[in-house]
Amino acid sequence: MSDPIIKIQNMNKWFGDFQVLKKINLEVEANKKIVVCGPSGSGKSTLIRCINRLEEHQEGDIIVDGNELSEKTKDIEKIRAEVGMVFQQFNLFPHLSILDNCTLAPIWVKKMPKKEAQELALDQLKKVQIDDQANKFPGQLSGGQQQRCAIARALCMQPKIMLFDEPTSALDPEMIKEVLDAMVSLAKGGMTMIVVTHEMGFAKEVADEVIFMDEGMIIEKADTKEFFANPKSDRTKLFLSQIL
């Protein structure tokens, strides 16, 4: 077994008095695809936001690619540059064109020459099939196109890990497929992915492991087949019976 790329040990997090995450233990090996599911308010999003320190945890350790995340972490930007993230609301920069959205971070964070960054961006946009929209602005694109652009933007940083925070929840049913397709082909390319989603079809297709969370705890963690075939806890069974 190789060293895990993400290692979370006994992590606790509070929002004020409310404990959102309780005793989280999680190890993710490189190139593995993890799907996190669970009812809303169960702390799924908070968990993956902790992995690139958009949220700070109060107790326990989070180690990403050999770097421990804590207040003492100096180069948090460097770690974040290695961890791409896709959001539920796309969060594209509305004042920049699609191409500029993708080249901004490579140019200014990675100091990539502009030309090289543009080639890379067009390449990534082509992979998600919106290279023909490169000069439009986010407001002119459909939700599905915007989300695919957001995926391309994250990939332009050539991250080691990709985090997806409910990437299809804000989309029309018709657009969900195009985004999922982009994610499937990314998964087949061997990216390490942690995906918070309710798309169980996607989970069955690509996930190596599925994690079920409720009330801030990891209730169940199992291989995908195992998870869907015979879930162990009653809570998981109830959840699956409602969602499938």
Partner: peptide
């Protein structure tokens, strides 16, 4: 500005 803009910028490694 929505918080998502800050999140997105941070997640791309911007200081």
């Amino acid at each position: 500005l929505p918080r998502g803009q800050y999140d997105a910028a941070k997640s791309l490694g911007m200081g």
